[in-house]
């Protein structure tokens, strides 16, 4: 393998990994945008989404098959279910705390994370669940570069979801309300915007995107378990910080950048794959030290 092939391969792999990070990072950043909460339960919504997608697929695979069509339908079901779960979590756990100090609500988020994780642990007995699909291992071999069909569909799906989100936020009434709420909640209330509903919609979309990522990860990697959301939750958080937390475009960019950095980072001489996570979280620290607002974030006086 020449360095050129190897470079392209890292690029492709980085994009795939980055798509997952970006989808999950979007939920972090949207929620932070509207209620200034670092929703640490977000990674667990990704895990819940993977299980919901698994359930959805076993429902529909009978008549749609377990190929991409079945997986897409399962993914939509999972997005719907986990979106609703996200709204319920917001109503039950976060809404009553909105007036409380920022730290209290952060602790609530950690508690929600533990509840979801342990519920999944109890339900699955801590075992890995095989996510069976009919997806083959096929792909294109371009020289030494290997591009699987699954990778292409995955990146394309992520791109479609992100473009849809961008259009929603920039072109629709609710999107405009969402942006307004993130700037000034009180003023929005005075202007007659139903802030509570906007927050609910934000949670619905953010959780739905996490579920989409979870289902795709399950289908792509082939197994799911209760702890799968932990690491990706932290990494998506890192991606959101790199892009500038609160910024939607920033989260997409941050996710892709982190995916690429991880992919290339493991190929720096003397840095083996064992240093992958050290590398990732060092970047988080560096960004926090030197550019706490991230690449596209707006500077704010008060931060959590």
């Amino acid at each position: 393998m020449t360095w050129y092939d190897s470079f392209l391969q890292q690029l492709v792999d980085g994009l795939v990994l980055g798509s997952f990070y970006a989808l999950v990072a979007l939920g972090y950043t949207m929620v932070f945008g509207v209620i200034k909460l670092l929703n640490f339960a977000h990674g667990d919504l990704y895990m819940t989404g993977a299980f919901a997608g698994f359930g959805g697929l076993s429902l529909v695979s009978g008549f749609l098959g377990a190929g991409w069509l079945g997986i897409f339908v399962a993914m939509l079901l999972a997005m719907l279910a986990v979106g609703c779960l996200g709204v319920v979590i917001e109503r039950v756990a976060y809404h009553p705390m909105l007036g409380a100090p920022r730290l209290s609500i952060l602790i609530t988020a950690l508690a929600v994370s533990l509840v979801l994780q342990n519920a999944a642990l109890a339900l699955t007995g801590g075992q890995y669940t095989a996510f069976r699909t009919d997806l083959g291992f096929g792909g294109f071999n371009l020289g030494n570069l290997f591009l699987s069909h699954n990778q292409i569909v995955l990146v394309a799906t992520a791109a479609v979801l992100m473009i849809a989100l961008e259009l929603f936020v920039s072109r629709t009434l609710y999107g405009r309300a969402m942006r307004a709420v993130s700037i000034d909640k009180d003023m929005c209330r005075m202007m007659g915007i139903n802030v509570s509903a906007v927050i609910a919609v934000t949670f619905f979309i953010g959780s739905g995107l996490a579920a989409a990522a979870g289902t795709m990860a399950g289908a792509y990697y082939g197994s799911i378990w209760y702890f799968m959301g932990f690491l990706i939750g932290l990494k998506a958080f890192t991606a959101a910080v790199i892009g500038g937390i609160g910024s939607i475009t920033g989260a997409m960019l941050g996710g892709l950048i982190l995916g690429l950095l991880e992919s290339f980072g493991t190929h720096i001489p003397f840095i083996g794959s064992e240093w992958k996570d050290v590398f990732t979280f060092s970047i988080l620290i560096l960004v926090l030290v030197f550019k706490p607002t991230g690449l596209l974030g707006k500077s704010e006086v008060e931060r959590m």
Binding site: D13, L17, Y221, T266, H267, G272, S273, K276
Partner: peptide
């Protein structure tokens, strides 16, 4: 290649490239 992966990691693409390379 003598490599190490983190427990619970799902994506081994970089590792696989390294092994193939």
């Amino acid at each position: 290649a003598f490599e190490y992966v983190n427990k619970g990691e799902q994506d081994f693409s970089a590792l696989v490239n390294k092994i193939r390379g």
